[in-house]
């Protein structure tokens, strides 16, 4: 074996060592996780994602939502995520079991969304009464972000269709606040993508208990 042969073996070894340690072993540790049964309610945790939410996860990825929003709660020693009430416990591998892209994110220009669908205080101010976000408020944020006070969210109005009302209104039209209403005789209808995205966002709820993620009292 000449000098290049030895060099090649070394190059291969450097790659294979890291591949075994950081891909193969993790695959064995977190690649075969199963949902766990909740002993009180009998629910499976994490709950399966609906087909619509699964599609919404792709819309989320394709529109780069992850470039501003994370979906991961760090442990209490790893940041103020829990203190901000973004979550009640650290998120763990099992939480993302059903997602083809976990959309973990790497920037927090917007708040963390790991528990958007749970009973929670307002995400932006982390105060106020606990309540669930509803689909209408999310649609309003995406279609006309300026109508939501204090928001610097970009507009995703291309996910909505504005059309003439022919006959009876469809009933699916967005109800927009004063100053942002659509013209007379028109309504704004969310596209399938918009509905899927909202269904996905409302499905984000990692408040159930898992043994590997103890909740500190």
């Amino acid at each position: 074996m000449n000098g290049y042969g030895r060099l090649f073996v070394g190059i291969l070894a450097a790659f294979v060592l890291s591949w075994v340690a950081l891909i193969l072993v993790p695959l064995n540790q977190v690649g075969n996780l199963m949902p766990l049964e909740d002993q009180v309610t009998g629910d499976m945790n994490p709950p399966a994602l609906s087909g619509l939410a699964q599609r919404g996860s792709k819309v989320y990825a394709a529109n780069g939502c992850a470039s501003c929003h994370t979906q991961q709660i760090r442990s209490e020693s790893g940041g103020a995520d829990i203190a901000r009430q973004w979550g009640t416990r650290q998120t763990v591998a099992r939480d993302y079991l059903h997602q083809s892209n976990p959309n973990l994110g790497a920037m927090r220009l917007g708040p963390d969304l790991a528990n958007l669908g749970a009973d929670r205080p307002d995400l932006n101010t982390n105060s106020g009464p606990k309540k669930k976000y509803d689909a209408a408020s999310l649609h309003q944020l995406f279609y006309a972000p300026k109508s939501v006070s204090g928001s610097s969210h970009p507009s995703y109005s291309f996910l909505y269709e504005k059309r003439e009302i022919k006959g009876i209104p469809s009933g699916m039209g967005l109800s927009l606040p004063v100053g942002f209403e659509t013209e007379e005789g028109k309504e704004v209808i969310p596209s399938e993508d918009a509905k899927a995205l909202v269904a996905y966002l409302l499905s984000l709820n990692r408040t159930y208990a898992l043994p590997e993620a103890p909740v500190k009292p």
Partner: peptide, 28 residues
Amino acid sequence: SGEIYDESTVTYGPVKGGAAAVEDPKVL
């Protein structure tokens, strides 16, 4: 361990982290 996610968990000495949830036979 594949079950410990909080890196500040102390694992030398008696193991504390990752305690399995106690099953209540009455509930089950």
